[in-house]
């Protein structure tokens, strides 16, 4: 959800941009990271883990934990928390990691 009236900060510009998430067109604000653009659209699960197939999303927001990987315009494993959203970007969740070692499945 977008914070329209921030208790302290002035309102952002209203520059909206469009992007696609798994094929669905969505809106974001200019200057947001991909992670924020997704969370603004109530998407918090960005992918599933490789081995145990557990849900993953934003954790550290500082490019360190690598939990927020998404696929951007076909490029896999992009850190969504440090990459800015751009007009027309095609974002896909990171659900396609090969389950090369097997494991218990959970979603």
């Amino acid at each position: 959800m977008y914070i329209d009236h921030h208790p302290i900060l002035e309102n952002h510009g209203n520059d909206q941009i469009s992007f696609f998430y798994d094929g669905t067109p969505l809106k974001a604000r200019q200057g947001q990271t991909i992670a924020a653009a997704l969370m603004m659209n109530n998407i918090r699960k960005f992918g599933i883990s490789r081995k145990l197939r557990q849900s993953r999303g934003l954790f550290c927001a500082n490019g360190r934990c690598c939990s927020c990987f998404v696929t951007v315009n076909g490029l896999e494993h992009v850190l969504s928390c440090t990459t800015l959203i751009e007009e027309g970007m095609e974002i896909k969740p990171n659900t396609g990691d090969p389950d090369v070692r097997g494991g218990i499945h959970e979603n």
Binding site: I3, H6, A36, R44, G57, L58, F59
Partner: peptide
């Protein structure tokens, strides 16, 4: 602790003040 929706306080602060998004 690995579930989406669990994050550091710093991450939550980035979301509200830098990104203007409610976590």
């Amino acid at each position: 602790w690995t579930l989406p929706g669990v994050m550091t306080v710093g991450a939550a602060q980035i979301l509200i003040n830098r990104e203007r998004v409610l976590p």
